[in-house]
């Protein structure tokens, strides 16, 4: 039982963490919580299955094309659902615009792909005690954490991303191309979201209805870990996966979801800024 809780819990937790990072990367560049994050995850699984299982492409090519597809959808999100509402952030219109785009993509996928879950191919023809459907999401999550750390700390573009996230007015005053950097951030977020769906494809299958599930459970680590805080999101995502799987074993059925959201509400009541979030200081 413990083995199953740990392996499935960590794998699912890593998928949630990657979706949470997708939210955060888009949030950092725009101050917008784009509810297309889960849809990007779903698209990663569907495109992976389309390219590899249905079209017979090599795994590497299918993987790269799936990430590219996610990146394109990230850019579309920025252009269609985020840019038009940036001037009125205080009205929170982005909730409506990003949800609408997410629903459109989801319905389009249902019509053109399938309303039934489709198989996701086994990516590596290897037999090991620890199945690839568990370690692939963990590997993907570790790669993204390391990659983002390197990007933000060691590259000029990464510093520019951080500058935009810190204060986009000041960054623009310094001559940074804010719009291009924002689009690049959304492309990066799209690729990370697609990676979540691709790496978790063997577990979640290529299914259009994964989108709302990932949107929902991917947001929990964002709220628990602190808005825009990737480290907090990863820790909270892993805890969420482990807790959810433990609840599946201990109480089972629909009560597992109830347990998850009960804990979620209690944590937010105790620490509204999230487990790792800092309290916002208002300048006076």
């Amino acid at each position: 039982m413990v083995e199953s809780i740990v392996s499935t819990g960590l794998a699912v937790g890593c998928i949630y963490a990657l979706i949470a990072i997708t939210y955060n990367v888009m949030f950092s560049a725009s101050r917008v919580f784009s509810f297309t994050a889960g849809t990007l995850g779903m698209i990663g699984g569907v495109l992976g299955s389309l390219f590899i299982a249905r079209m017979g492409m090599p795994v590497a090519a299918g993987f790269l094309l799936a990430l590219a597809g996610g990146a394109v959808l990230g850019i579309v999100t920025e252009i269609v659902a985020v840019r038009p509402v940036l001037k009125s952030l205080d009205q929170h219109l982005y909730v409506l615009s990003t949800l609408a785009l997410a629903l459109m993509i989801q319905q389009f996928t249902a019509i053109e792909w399938s309303t039934e879950p489709q198989p996701f191919p086994r990516l590596f023809d290897i037999a090991s005690g620890f199945d690839q459907k568990f370690w692939l999401p963990m590997l993907a999550c570790a790669a993204v954490i390391v990659g983002l750390e390197l990007l933000y700390r060691r590259t000029l573009v990464g510093h520019a991303f951080l500058a935009i996230a810190e204060d986009n007015f000041a960054a623009r005053a310094l001559g940074l191309p804010e719009r291009s950097l924002r689009m690049a951030s959304f492309a990066l977020a799209g690729a990370i979201g697609a990676l979540a769906g691709f790496a978790g494809g063997e577990m979640l299958l290529a299914f259009f209805a994964n989108a709302p599930m990932l949107t929902f459970y991917g947001f929990v680590p964002v709220a628990l870990g602190g808005m825009g805080n990737n480290r907090g999101a990863v820790v909270a995502g892993l805890l969420l996966g482990l807790f959810q799987q433990a609840a599946n074993f201990l109480v089972g059925g629909i009560f597992a979801s109830v347990a998850v959201f009960t804990v979620f509400i209690i944590v937010l009541l105790a620490r509204p800024e999230g487990l790792a979030g800092a309290t916002l200081q208002r300048r006076v």
């Binding site: 994964n210 089972g252 629909i254």
Partner: peptide, 13 residues
Amino acid sequence: GNVDAANPDLKPE
């Protein structure tokens, strides 16, 4: 039992 169809792991059940 009634279980969410999206639950990826039914081993506990």
